[in-house]
């Protein structure tokens, strides 16, 4: 499970980077210049102006990325160990919702098995829709202000 977590961390890194960059670019120049004009250092401008301004956008971007990590299937399936038990240690094999579907759907023979897998899909989708829905609203709020 630790490996899977690490891989996901690297997979969502580019998403967070691009979204953070984009929202930081929407910070109005005059705002930053006003702060520089007061003799602030670059970091003080970032912390005092840019980050607060873009806060909801960055948080939204992080949630979008987490939503992606939640649904990421293949990379997780390959390393997580596919063990249908609740393991206590991060170092033990585990399982994820997406991985179960990926592994079992193609060979689900009985209707009950199929229904169970579709139900997992529904839960997975519900969770990601909620996470994404909230994240998008945060990003919209920033856009409307810009």
């Amino acid at each position: 499970m630790l490996t899977a977590g690490l891989i996901l961390a690297f997979m969502i890194l580019p998403y967070i980077t691009t979204i953070t960059r984009e929202v930081l670019l929407t910070v109005p120049r005059p705002l930053k210049e006003a702060m520089y004009g007061l003799g602030a250092t670059r970091w003080e401008v970032v912390r005092g102006v840019s980050l607060p301004y873009a806060k909801s956008g960055i948080v939204g971007g992080v949630f979008l990325a987490l939503g992606r990590a939640l649904g990421e299937t293949m990379a997780v399936t390959m390393v997580i160990g596919n063990n249908p038990k609740i393991a206590l240690s991060l170092l033990e094999p585990g399982y994820s919702m997406a991985a179960v579907i990926a592994n079992e759907l193609a060979e689900a023979a009985s209707d009950a098995h199929l229904s169970a897998l579709v139900a997992i899909g529904l839960v997975l989708m519900a969770v990601t829709v909620v996470v994404n829905g909230a994240a998008r609203l945060m990003l919209y709020r920033l856009q409307r202000r810009a």
Binding site: T73, I101, L124, M125
Partner: peptide, 8 residues
């Protein structure tokens, strides 16, 4: 939709 997992 853009964020819904591709497996779904």
């Amino acid at each position: 939709m853009n964020g819904v997992p591709s497996i779904v």
